[in-house]
Design a protein around this nucleic acid. Structure first.
Lengths: 188, 188
DNA sequence: GTCTATAAGGCGATAGAC
DNA sequence: GTCTATCGCCTTATAGAC
């Protein structure tokens, strides 16, 4: 039987709560009940809600960084894209969107310390996609309709939005539309 | 000197409040102070917060419908796209995103009545873009990388996300990237 | 570390005077 | 229609016992 420290459990449940309800949509009470402690115990590990959310964004970002850096860059671009999309597809139906995309809606309530980590997260994803498009470009017969950096911003934005709006519609149409464009501009 | 009924003022300020802070990010107190009434007066016009937000989404949707239906379909596709994008560009720097995109992050807290109007809004925009792409298709030398309906979902999603994330970054890069793809796939 | 108890204020909503 | 007053509950956060 695996044991997890209270701190680890708090962070793990916070990730899910933010990805479902956003910064203003969950409380210390919600979190305390999930972990089985009192709200005052949360303050022992994370003095303020901003502290808790900052650590959650750092953890989320670190996991994503490890994941996309773990994708073998020598693989065919289409296969790299497939691996990038896999966890997004796995999230369909869970009610969870990207943590940074959710926090983006509440950004006017967040301190600069959190915003900085959020910006780094978005840029990391955009840059990974941009490099993928750059590597795939020589394999194409025609140039992209827009430069790789712009194409990366569009595809990443569409993916982020598709996970948010996927909870409004009971379908993964929008995620698959963005995925189709991503793989569609990359030679097989 | 223009006079606006209290109800009109409440609705107008609600539009801005939601577009800035989202459903869970504004209160009757915020709204009452902006209009200069007491919170109990808001309940006279809108018994519950759900009632208020439902009317706000309906009003927002009606305005958008009138606007995009007012774009002359016989104009060159690129000019239609420019007119579609104009109000999005005008919103840059105001801290306001699309009302429906903001509510999408809080969708787990919203009743089905509001969700239905939100779905209609998204479909209306996607369909308008899809028809634009369909009309522009014969003018192109090569086919789109994905069908017009999918391209519409991707471009619309990227536009929605660009207005949300535009508050995180102090730039309209992402809006302009989506705009560049939109106009880039349409012959001049 | 975790608890009980509590502070200090915000929330949506209602009753009833005017 | 708009107000005052208030209800019941929720929120983040702190003090201090164990």
């Amino acid at each position: 039987m695996k044991t997890h420290s209270v701190r680890e459990q708090l962070l793990e449940h916070t990730l899910v709560l933010i990805r479902r309800r956003g910064f203003n949509g969950f409380s210390y009470r919600d979190l305390a009940e999930l972990v089985g402690v009192k709200t005052s115990s949360i303050h022992y590990y994370f003095p303020s809600k901003d502290d808790l959310v900052l650590e959650a964004v750092r953890e989320y970002s670190a996991r994503t960084k490890e994941r996309i850096h773990g994708i073998d860059a020598s693989l065919p671009p289409a296969e790299q894209a497939r691996q990038y999309l896999a966890p997004l597809r796995a999230g369909v139906g869970t009610g969870q969107a990207c943590l940074v995309a959710m926090l983006c809606a509440d950004v006017l309530d967040l301190p600069e310390s959190i915003r900085q980590v959020m910006r780094d997260y978005v840029r990391m994803n955009e840059q990974w996609l941009a490099r993928l498009f750059e590597r795939a470009q020589p394999l194409r017969s025609t140039p992209y309709p827009v430069p790789p950096e712009q194409l990366a911003k569009v595809v990443y934005g569409a993916l982020q939005n598709s996970m948010i709006s996927g909870r409004l519609f009971d379908t993964s149409e929008r995620l698959e539309a963005a995925a189709a464009l991503l793989t569609g501009v990359i030679p097989a």
